[in-house]
């Protein structure tokens, strides 16, 4: 308390601090409140603009997903089941020489889409196709879907190759439910076949995990299979080899497409 004797304003230092504190606190609280409001508004605007549902046209998976009446449906499977895809650690696409399913005919899947209309994935329709099995709760599927959407949108995908997807492992208790909402939001173009609640379609195709993709030649036989967040360049190369017109990457001898 030696300060007291030194000047005529003994508590000057103290009272200045008290004064300043009273001034700074509302400023800090106001700043925090303002920051939270700004963050809330920006977050709202950012997440709103991520809705791409309007970019998908009529007849697409997203269009059916908007009018969803169901998230799972019974599916009729005919034909021989494919063996489970066995990938080594870190491997995403199966090597055609090692996958026993290559050359096997895919099972025919007859079921429904989100809006209740019928959809069949038929090995005998004479068209090369890519079938993607997607789980709504899987972050790797969530990461892969926009990449594939962009690839289809870009127009670089061969015109004769058809894209199908299967919404599988659907579970109302898991993240990002329902799948219809997710795929509508993404503006997902490929038609979506609904798997049943026990995942029978995915099982018949030998899915080891999600996302799972099966590349099928025009003769209805498996050309290649893969699982995981496949880099889009590798995905594109796998699609190109299906196309009859071929592509830069279509040098595969295993392509049965004539």
């Amino acid at each position: 308390m030696t300060d007291v004797k030194k000047g005529d304003k003994p508590y000057a230092q103290y009272s200045r601090n008290v004064h300043d504190r009273k001034n700074a606190m509302p400023m800090i609280l106001g700043g925090i409140a303002l920051a939270i409001v700004v963050i809330g508004v920006v977050a709202f605007l950012l997440t709103r603009s991520e809705d791409k549902s309007d970019t998908a046209g009529a007849g697409t998976g997203a269009e059916a997903a908007k009018d969803a009446t169901q998230e799972t449906a019974s599916v009729t499977i005919s034909g021989e089941d494919l063996p489970v895809l066995n990938l080594s650690q870190g491997q995403l696409l199966g090597a055609p020489g090692e996958d026993p399913a290559v050359g096997m005919e895919i099972p025919k899947l007859a079921g429904q889409t989100f809006d209740g209309s019928d959809l069949t994935i038929d090995p005998a329709d004479g068209k090369p196709k890519v079938i993607l099995f997607l789980a709504h709760w899987c972050p790797h599927c969530q990461a892969e879907v926009p990449l594939i959407k962009e690839y289809i949108d870009s127009g670089n995908a061969p015109e004769d190759v058809e894209f199908y997807s299967v919404a599988t492992q659907t579970d109302a208790g898991k993240a990002n439910y329902p799948p219809s909402g997710w795929l509508a939001r993404e503006g997902w173009q490929p038609p979506v076949l609904l798997d049943d609640s026990s995942g029978s379609a995915a099982q018949s195709y030998g899915a080891p995990g999600w996302p799972y993709m099966v590349f099928v030649g025009a003769d209805g036989k498996v050309v290649q299979r893969g699982s995981g967040e496949v880099p889009i360049e590798q995905f594109e190369a796998a699609v190109q080899q299906l196309s009859a017109s071929g592509g830069a990457a279509a040098t595969s001898t295993s392509t049965p497409a004539a």
Binding site: A135, P139, C141, W210, P211, Y212, S227
Partner: peptide
């Protein structure tokens, strides 16, 4: 390193 980039259950 030990987990693939796909989802299982």
């Amino acid at each position: 390193d030990s987990v693939a980039s796909s989802c299982t259950n």
